[in-house]
Design a protein around this nucleic acid. Sequence first.
DNA 1: CGCGCGATTGAGTAATTTCAAATCTAGTGG
DNA 2: CCACTAGATTTGAAATTACTCAATCGCGCG
Lengths: 189, 189
Amino acid sequence: MERLRKHIEEITPLSDEEFEHIKTFFTLRKVRKHQYLIQEGDAVGYEYVVLGGIFKLFYLDGEGKEYIVQFARVNWWMCDYNAYFFKGKATLNAVCMEEGEVLCLTLQGREKLSADYHKMEHFFRVKLTNGYAALQRRITSLLSSTPQERYREFSELYPNLIQEIPKKYIAEYLGVSRETLSRLYSNGK
Amino acid sequence: MERLRKHIEEITPLSDEEFEHIKTFFTLRKVRKHQYLIQEGDAVGYEYVVLGGIFKLFYLDGEGKEYIVQFARVNWWMCDYNAYFFKGKATLNAVCMEEGEVLCLTLQGREKLSADYHKMEHFFRVKLTNGYAALQRRITSLLSSTPQERYREFSELYPNLIQEIPKKYIAEYLGVSRETLSRLYSNGK
DNA sequence: CGCGCGATTGAGTAATTTCAAATCTAGTGG
DNA sequence: CCACTAGATTTGAAATTACTCAATCGCGCG
């Protein structure tokens, strides 16, 4: 929980009292490799803050192919936000790739925290701001960059991830087949 | 300005007094066709709420090809948020496609409103929430759907836009060439 | 009438995908 | 320590798809 406090305080300071109350909205959950946090078709009860481990958020098409919308590591938030915010069924899946821990927050929890604490509303707004800007960049990249460029951008943005996860998942994130990705950095870069 | 009030009050009610103060942060600007609101390389001083007209937000690559990140019509917000929030130079451009009006808000204005009015912080959070969910969906679509499917999704989401703007811009939004888009709905569906 | 812009069509080209097979690697149990 | 296996990566070749380039068509407007 101390890590959560630090995370929030990167954006807004909290008194001990406030944090004591705020933290009651979060529940800790240990997650093992291959475990699902979100499963398509189900209701999405929680969003997750990653405390440790590596997770992927992905869409599964009719033929069983995966498309990775997002990776998540420590201090990243992760959810199928369309299903979560609008109380629908998930179309995305979230799975643990490397054992770790997450904090779970319900939508009521988020809204209650936001309503009761201007600070927390501010915190969520800033997080969304950053997230929105990042997604805008990702869309620009998907539209305008070649697979080579996207691979380079990715490796600059997440240099450590490249080492730690199978490359086929990076291919699924970049939107190319694993064979193509493999050829990209064998055939002259 | 009455339209702005309605727009905000879709999310949170305001007293006359509050609105009188809030509206002083916005400045009205009439925009003619082909006019730029954001130009790559420049600092991004404002974000824009569209009151009328049609706008496009796009990236221009080295060869002069356009990639449309977003269209914007009434009540849509529009900005190069990476440059705006992080005070960098714009990499995107925003241009008027159909004459209209926008309200301009500076980053200081946004932050001041958010700090002074919990309500406004809430308003911005909710808008960002919706926007984030929409971008997450767009990314999923860009990764997993064929151009045909993306075209169908687009026409379901924005049935009116299809009629009102040249199809080549829709191609730039979907990430295909205009020729390919043209063949999509002539050749069987 | 003719210009200009957008849309369409055709043909050839380039890039990526798909399918299949071979290779490599890390972890397991003997 | 070695052999074995499952998963990941690489490689090759064929098929598919979208792109580019060029020409034509259609329409609104001066």
